[in-house]
Write a protein that binds this DNA or RNA. Structure first.
Lengths: 203, 203, 203, 203
DNA sequence: GATGAATGAGGCTTCATTCAT
DNA sequence: CATGAATGAAGCCTCATTCAT
């Protein structure tokens, strides 16, 4: 609905266009990582993608749309992995299935993750992205409602807090250059469980 | 003592200039809040501060120095309040004394806090700021070492995680428009305690 | 081949841009002549060239590059004419063939010549310009080595002095508003011959 | 008459002021040498002179006046030494007495000399400076009129050419980093004599 | 007279965006 | 559709000059 902000101005029909679009998006990611916000210019992205600026503007009506597309790409990639949480037998396992992809994505490209985080807060996101993000929240909420999880007085607040804890810890780890994904995943899960337990008995 | 990045290029000698400097810093804060990064221009800051750009550059050698000064100001303000943690009889109370000022600062000016957070990661901080930040970390570490706190296998990791949890939760709250400071403080503390307990018995 | 200081940042591929580039260079020359260093601004040059500043910066990465290109243009123009010196049968004629183009260029646009002279000393020249200048020196040296020229104890010193004398006299003439090119050429040649004769017999 | 351009706005009566003025002028010289035109700012000069900008403007109404004063200082210093030419018994000796101070001044501070040369051409000089320069020209003319000098068809043209030759050679030497003053003086004299001889017999 | 804080016009340069080819 | 030259508003920053203290 507010598509003008981040969706490609024209949905690519041909394979070539698809390839172009994803080359551009990946180039955007790389420029962002390598040069930060300061060096993130449409010309730089086009050059790295091996296309002309004109072509870039064929698919992305404005600079922000590039970031929007990037956010969508990363968020969808995250949710694809996180969906498996729904299939886990226990809450504990569901939680792990949620945290692991987050850790993975953050430590895979920490600089990118951090920058996109910032952008997510700044930019008006398009409907699709919002929906994907909502889905992640729901998965979290559902995991917390599993029978093996400590009961929470307010499940929405709990879910929000859990997401915040996960985000906060993982982000700090990325910034700190941490590389032990399993260790980090464990610590994050421990924190979440600790929070849930502490909250279940009236806090 | 002096750091090219964020310290005033000229230490103000006259009363007039002291006023100018703080007017500029506060103007920078306001512009950042109201217009975000995009609208944060030296001219805008100077105008809002009621001085000329020239004056601004008399005290801040480059645009980034404004942000640096702002970060220092906020960090020092935080630490001033947080120092009381050292005087608390118990770890529990020390923890509260640490969390409360964080919550206060974040909810007081959420947009500003979030933007400065981003800048802290991006900018090379001057020595003074680094030291103040280290001090906050030490206060946290000391609190966790109190006898009434669950013992941690690695105190530094624990302290870092605690800081990350606090930051993550408070930041999310600010973004979400939360206003109940006491409630938030309690939830954060609960999360921290939960994490510490979960961590003390080997996870 | 490429030199960051004065070569166009982008080699023009289309006919359009070739025209743009030379329009810019000529505009630079004119602005320099009409307004001197003080009035030599990129905006002024762009305006006089009838293009936008952006276009100017598309081809010249910095202001100095404009001057560099101008120096190269003038030096190449000079050498093109001076090359005929190599074909002259006698040293006397070769000398004339060297001096005449210098006089021509200086009196054609005296203000420009003088300013560029100053810039040549100030700016780091790119490889191509250096080479062209070296070529001029070699032509001079070769002329002095002809059999009809008085033998010199140190041919390099002699060549350098001759170039200095020529430059000094012509520059002064330009500054003085002299217009009689033939007269000037003769006087300069006389000075050079006088110097060479005086130097040949041990000084 | 056109005093506004370079004379101190107020003639210093007190010893202290005199000291201040010459400190400023020398500071100007140093800044010019060390940082060239680009770094030559009134603030830099004031700082190096150890006075405030305000004080500088007390004595020099505008930036150019600094350069004007510097030119005057150097020119007067030159003429002071060159005056001895008038006392020499022969033209040959008078010529040497003229050339030597030029060589001295140029090689003493080559960068400064070259920059001032450029300024002399650019700036409207005040009456006093003009007069001092004229005096140098007269000394040269008189030397050429001595009986032991080759007769010249046009004495003014000859004097101008001689000055140009001297300037050209000495300047090139300074630029080239030459340090042998005696050798240079001899070569310059040889060139001048050569020119004069060549000119005396109708070319 | 001296000081140095303040001014603000103006110069350099970038970069999102358009559009002729 | 692709290209890349062109645009020009806008941002950063300097520095000659003034003036209140």
């Amino acid at each position: 609905m507010s598509e003008s902000r981040s969706l490609p101005r024209k949905t690519p029909r041909q394979a070539r266009s698809l390839a172009t679009v994803s080359a551009i998006v990946e180039a955007a990611a790389r420029i962002l990582e390598e040069r930060g916000h300061e060096g993130f210019s449409t010309n730089a992205v086009a050059e790295k993608a091996g296309v002309s600026v004109g072509s870039l503007y064929q698919y992305f009506p404005r600079k922000d749309a590039l970031i929007g597309a990037l956010i969508l790409r990363q968020t969808m990639s995250l949710i694809r992995d996180a969906e498996s949480a729904a299939d886990q037998p226990t809450g504990q396992e569901a939680l792990s299935a949620l945290i692991a992809p987050c850790v993975h994505q953050q430590l895979e490209r920490p600089a990118l993750a951090r920058l996109l985080d910032y952008e997510e807060a700044r930019l008006p996101l398009d409907a699709e992205t919002e929906q994907v993000k909502r889905r992640f929240f729901e998965l979290t909420r559902d995991a917390l409602l599993r029978p093996d999880m400590p009961a929470q007085p307010d499940i929405d607040v709990a879910a929000r807090d859990v997401v915040a804890i996960v985000k906060g810890m993982i982000d700090a780890a990325g910034e700190h250059g941490e590389e032990d994904r399993n260790g980090l995943t464990l610590r994050v899960k421990r924190a979440v469980i600790g929070y849930l337990k502490a909250g279940s008995d009236g806090g």
